[in-house]
Design a protein around this nucleic acid. Structure first.
Lengths: 191, 191
DNA sequence: CGCTTAAATTGACCGCGGTCAATAATTAAT
DNA sequence: ATTAATTATTGACCGCGGTCAATTTAAGCG
C-alpha cells in the first residue's frame, strides 16, 4: 500500500485541467499544445506527464467529460417516441462529436480499451450510450421491430451514429445533414 | 501548363514505395519511420515530402492498395447466399483492417475526404465496399428483407463492419470473434 | 552546344510530444 | 527535531514528423 495522495498533487492536477479547459475554450481541441498548458498552469513540462500518461489521456478526460454530461442530459430527458424524435434527442451528442475532425478521430481512437483496467472516460461513454439507447428501445412508447432483440437495436444505433457522423466529414455526402442521414437508418429498426 | 513528369521522378517515387513496403513487411505499419524509408531508398528526407504530402499520405497509398486488392478478390468471387457466407467472404477484409490497431485507426481517419479532389486510396475503398455490398444485396441468390431499400442495406453492412472491427479492440468484447459478432447484425437484414 | 527556366533534390533546422536522472517537498517514525 | 523513505517537480534532452532556402539536375530553345 502506498501513501495517501498529497493535497499538492490534486491542486496541480486541477490547475492543469483548468488551464487546458480555458485554452480549448479559446482555440479548440486540435490547437491545444502541452507547452501552453504547462505555461498557463505554471508548472514544468515533466509535471504534465507525471499526471497524464500522454496528451491523449488529457483529451480523453476533457472530451469524455463533455460527452458524459451530454448523455446525462439525454438520459434525464423524455423517452423519444419515434425515429425522428430519437434523432432529435441525439442532436447535441452528434453536434459535439462532429464539432472538430480532431475530436471525432480522438473519440473513435478511444472508443475501445486494450484492457479492462484501461477503460477511459470516452470508452465509458460508449457503454453509457448503449444503456440510454437500450432504455429507449425497451420503453413501450417507442415502437421498435419486435423481430430484432432490443440489445442488437441499441448496438445498431451506436453503429449508425458513428456512420452518420463520419459521413459528415466526407465531401461526397456533405450536402445532407447528419440528422437527415441518420433518420432512414433508424427507421429501418422501427415498425 | 507545366512540363512532363521526369523519368527520374517516377524512379524516386517507386524507390520510396518499395523501401516502405519492405520495411512494413519486416516490422509492420506502426513501426515505420520516414527516416528509415529515405535511408533505404537512398534519398534525402526532404525528397520524401516532395513526393508525399505527409507520412499519412504514404500510409494511405500502402494500406489503400492492400484494401483495394482484397475487395477486388471479393468482387471476383461468388456472390454469398446467406448472412454467414457474407461474413465469411468479408473475412480477409476484416483480417487486414484489424491486423494492427494503427492500421484500423488510419483507415477510419481516411474514410472520408474533406474535399472531392482529395479522395485518397482508402476513401476509394469505402465506395468500392459499398458497390460490392450493393451488388450482393441486389443479387437474387441473397435473400434480403424487401422492406428496406438495398442501398440502405449496403450502407448498413459498412457500418456494421466498422462496429464489429472496432469492438475487436475492446477488452469488454474481446472474447467474441469479429465473425461471430458481425453475424447477428447481418441476420437482422435478412429474411 | 550554351543559355534559360522549370522541376527535383538536399540537409540543416524547427515544433512539439514525450523521457529521465537529479532535485525538492512531504510524510511517517524515532 | 532529526532522519529516512516516498512522492512530486524540474528542465535539459531526445525522437521524429515536417519545412524551406539553397543547390543540382533535366528539359526546351535558338
Amino acid at each position: 500500500m502506498g501513501r495517501a495522495i498529497q493535497a499538492r498533487t490534486l491542486k496541480t492536477r486541477a490547475r492543469l485541467i483548468d488551464a487546458a479547459t480555458e485554452l480549448v475554450a479559446q482555440s479548440g481541441y486540435e490547437a491545444l499544445r502541452v507547452e501552453e498548458v504547462v505555461l498557463r498552469a505554471g508548472v514544468a513540462k515533466g509535471t504534465f506527464f507525471a499526471h497524464f500518461k500522454d496528451k491523449d489521456a488529457l483529451m480523453d478526460q476533457l472530451i469524455g467529460g463533455r460527452l458524459s454530461a451530454i448523455l446525462d442530459e439525454m438520459d434525464d430527458g423524455p423517452v423519444p417516441r419515434s425515429a425522428a424524435e430519437v434523432v432529435h434527442a441525439m442532436r447535441p451528442l452528434i453536434q459535439f462529436a462532429t464539432s472538430e475532425r480532431y475530436v471525432f478521430d480522438l473519440i473513435l481512437r478511444h472508443s475501445g480499451a486494450a484492457a479492462i483496467e484501461e477503460i477511459g472516460p470516452i470508452a465509458q461513454t460508449f457503454l453509457q450510450q448503449y444503456e440510454v439507447s437500450l432504455k429507449w428501445v425497451q420503453h413501450p412508447d417507442l415502437r421498435v421491430r419486435d423481430d430484432i432483440p432490443p440489445e442488437l437495436v441499441a448496438e445498431g444505433i451506436g453503429a449508425f451514429l458513428i456512420q452518420a457522423a463520419s459521413l459528415q466529414f466526407c465531401a461526397l455526402h456533405a450536402s445532407v445533414s447528419v440528422e437527415e442521414r441518420l433518420l432512414p437508418y433508424l427507421e429501418a429498426w422501427f415498425k
